[in-house]
Amino acid sequence: MEIIKIENLSKSYSSLKRKNNVLALDNVSLSVERGKIFGLLGQNGAGKTTLVKILLGLTHPTEGRFSLFGDSTNNYKNKKRIGYLPENHRFPNFLTAYQVLYYLGLLSELNYDGLKRKIFEALELVGLKGVEKKKVKTFSKGMMQRLGIAQAIIHNPDLIFLDEPTDGIDPIGRKEIRDILVRLKNENKTIFLNSHILSEVELITDNVAILHQGKLIKQGSISDLTAIENEYRITTDSELDTFLSKSDFVNFQLKKLNGFTYVLSGTDEDGLNKFVDLLRLNGITIKELIKQKLSLEEIFISLIKDLDKVK
């Protein structure tokens, strides 16, 4: 089931200082399935935050439409099923962590009864147990980020928008946050993640979309996007140099990487199987055989570079 459906969404900003309108989003269409972690990637100013703000009703679209939970009315009541961690969020300095969650918990339609328990559960989940009485003005960036996540999940929402959730958090903290997100996903929550830390996105997301200058330039599952067609890496227990010149494999390319590791390219699955059979016939043991893939970062950079070249 589609939790988020966006159709031809555009947003332009007019400015007295500029002659032309600034197109922050240009005809963006995408959808997000329930229970998935969806990553929205893009450089700074690509339109990621604008898209989330439109979905949350903070900004009005110029054109296009969207629906959340199948409802396209943008009813604010739907927000009790939504959690949001904005980028560079601010909490009032005069409040303690407990008070922040108290007010925001009440606004999330939590009842007074049980609110205290939920506050402590949320604080424990994000690793802020024991600091509930501390004023947020004494919090580090990482603690603020954790508190932001706590307020986004305190009311057990079905859909969670996180804008740069690991910003300012140390590597161990990042791992903890990734674990929280995976745990939420396992509870059938849908997570919409805005991030420019591609290595992290790659670790936890199911699907990604890449925005560039307001346009959606690529979307799909992580495995589809990062896979390289007909290319495999093979590690054996001995040299394969004799096969490099085999006439049977003239359509293939076998390239030595290092040691007994080679890259086999230009073959489909049938060809691959034939090659494996041949190795076995020759008494060669295959230690590892994996489909070659690029990292998300490599894909992203290559896409952006290609677009810039076209321009």
Partner: peptide, 15 residues
């Protein structure tokens, strides 16, 4: 209306 504050408020079920 400060950025980062209003976003948090309006992400809650309040008009």
């Amino acid at each position: 209306l400060e950025k980062g504050t209003i976003d948090v408020f309006l992400s809650k079920p309040i008009s």
